[in-house]
Design a protein around this nucleic acid. Structure first.
Lengths: 132, 132
DNA sequence: TTATTATTTAACGCATACGTTAAATAATAT
DNA sequence: ATATTATTTAACGTATGCGTTAAATAATAA
């Protein structure tokens, strides 16, 4: 029970799908920054970025922390976990190719289909053509 | 000049950010499928999925091909390149952590800031506190 | 040609997302 | 208490995205 729930992937991907948020993330690559700096770096108003940050926060792509020495300041930093989750999903999808496994797998299935006629999710079923 | 243009990343991420499209992608993991099957698997009408497929096609996450034996049928299949582009970007962002490079980098910068007062993009600038 | 099957466009309604400016909070400093 | 700086929330207009049904294409079969 350490998995961040699968639905998060949609949120993570959607969060990163916005250009402004992606700019923010790339900006934070160089270290924790304040909201105002992020907004400026992304070329938009504070309020606009504030809402983007909220979206990123909700997915835990970023976290906030107050600076001890000056509690007025909040710093945002990238968080590792969501990126790893995404990375894991990508690998899972890409395992598809791995070692030319694609054709192999596809062919194997088509063979199975040919033999079984129609499985539970008939991948081609080729609109039964008139015959051989 | 083999790079798929950086802006594509936004498109790719946005494309994968939609649940229906992600379901489609995961469904295609098992091999090429027809549009109708994909729509059914995702639990939505053909037209709805058709537009999702167009989005995925635009990012080249999927490609279409006609079946020789029955040209009425078009099969969609996952394409490798965009996933690799995304994977590359992820690695680039994640290089940030790599080997506890984060704290190191962040600290180094804060030191530089202390010494220089204000660089070109002052990461903290700590709202100059009253002073030591 | 006419009919059949698969897929895409078109048109509609609805909801959500985005950015802006103005007002509200939060934390300190004087 | 009042002022200052940083950030968030509220309110507003506009635009884009999504799903549905109905109509249009595409490719073939009879």
């Amino acid at each position: 029970m350490q998995n961040p729930a699968p639905e998060n992937l949609d949120l993570i991907l959607a969060a990163l799908g916005d250009p402004a948020r992606r700019r923010a993330v790339e900006f934070l690559k160089d270290g924790p920054r304040r909201a105002g700096e992020i907004a400026e770096a992304a070329g938009m108003s504070g309020p606009a970025m504030s809402r983007h940050l909220r979206v990123l926060r909700k997915t835990r792509l970023i976290t906030e922390e107050r600076v001890e020495e000056d509690a007025r300041i909040k710093l945002y930093r990238l968080e590792r976990a969501p990126f790893e989750a995404l990375s894991g999903w990508l690998e899972e999808v890409s395992a598809f190719w791995g070692d030319s496994l694609q054709a192999l797998k596809a062919h194997a299935e088509s063979v199975v289909r040919e033999e079984k006629g129609a499985g539970k999710s008939p991948p081609v079923r080729a609109a039964r053509r008139s015959g051989p």
